[in-house]
């Protein structure tokens, strides 16, 4: 155990941050999850994926959900989107229970899921046309959203002509075009390389600051969670349960330089403790002994 364990620095909030959280909690609740359970029928009896999940998101709040693999974070967001049903519990949107998928909860998937047969513009128009908007209005609105994500030049391109980051921007525009109450994002930047991911995070922050949207964002990247979130919902695995709900003490609006600030580092350390507790890693020094086929350190002369 290192001295970092039990470090409560991340609980220290500056005056401005504390006031901000107080104001945030005054805002109306957009999404509420009450006593959510999810059980799967596995080959060896029932498996509990989620147990007693409770939380609320407030209007214009950015909440990240983080946890080790197998904690059911993807199951959770799929239940919120209505793509799967909960075994028990309720999902309330603006105090009304929701069943099944709907345009009031926009979703961005890790795998882009753009319609390959539609151009960027028509992809973004899809939801608008579904809700019965006339074609001309849908088109002009779609173009505004495409402009917001900076892809005006690519409005008539097909998805296969775009890079991963661009595709994901289209997916965000497509979800936002429906003006959902909440934007659900399931590891949206997971498939992108590090540079593109950093850029996309800034883009998303930028968009979020400019429009009235609540975001629930799933990630397994600790850095990403601290950088983006107002609050972080930390889940643990087997079964998936809420471990802690962390209020991120890093002031808003965020900028990449804050990654080096003490609050940022303290929060990240706390996440590290929760998700990779010391001693949980397997010791593999035994296995190294078995690797006799490669020259050992001592057999290779050091250049120093």
């Amino acid at each position: 155990m290192t001295a970092a364990a039990g470090n409560k620095d991340y609980l220290q909030q500056s005056e401005a941050v504390r006031e901000r959280f107080e104001r945030l909690k005054q805002r109306p609740v957009t999404l509420e999850v009450r006593g959510l359970h999810k059980q799967f029928q596995g080959s060896e009896g029932p498996v509990t994926a989620l147990r007693n999940i409770n939380f609320k998101t407030h209007q214009r709040e950015f909440v990240c959900v983080i946890g080790p693999s197998g904690c059911g974070k993807s199951t959770l967001i799929r239940i919120l989107a209505g793509l799967e049903s909960a075994t028990e519990g309720q999902v309330l949107l603006d105090d009304k229970p929701v069943y099944g998928p709907g345009p009031d909860r926009g979703m961005v998937f890790q795998g882009y899921t753009l319609f390959p047969w539609l151009t960027v513009k028509k992809n973004v128009m899809f939801g608008l046309l579904q809700s019965g908007a006339p074609r001309a209005r849908a088109e002009s609105e779609a173009l505004q959203w495409i402009d917001l994500v900076g892809l005006s030049r690519f409005a008539d391109h097909y998805p296969h002509q775009l890079s991963g980051g661009m595709k994901q921007r289209v997916a965000i525009a497509r979800a936002l075009a429906n003006q959902p109450r909440i934007l659900l994002m399931d590891e949206p930047f997971g498939a992108l390389d590090a540079q593109t991911r950093a850029k996309m995070q800034s883009y998303l922050m930028d968009i979020w600051q400019h429009i009235d949207i609540t975001v629930l964002f799933i990630t397994h990247d600790l850095d990403e969670a601290v950088y983006l979130a107002d609050r972080i919902l930390v889940l643990k695995a087997h079964p998936g349960e809420v471990q802690e709900l962390i209020e991120v003490p890093v002031p808003q609006p965020r900028s990449p330089e804050q990654r080096l600030s003490p609050e940022f580092i303290a929060t990240k350390q706390r996440l590290e403790e929760l998700i990779h507790p010391p001693g949980s890693e397997e010791d593999n020094s035994d296995h190294l002994d078995m690797v006799r086929l490669v020259p050992l350190d001592s057999e290779v002369r050091s250049v120093l």
């Binding site: 793509l83 099944g100 998928p101 709907g102 926009g106 998937f109 795998g111 899921t113 899809f126 497509r174």
Partner: peptide, 17 residues
């Protein structure tokens, strides 16, 4: 790809669409 159908559902598409 079933995720295309899921995406369409979250965009408000129903059976016919």
């Amino acid at each position: 790809d079933p995720s295309l159908l899921e995406a369409a559902q979250t965009l408000g598409a129903k059976n016919r669409a």
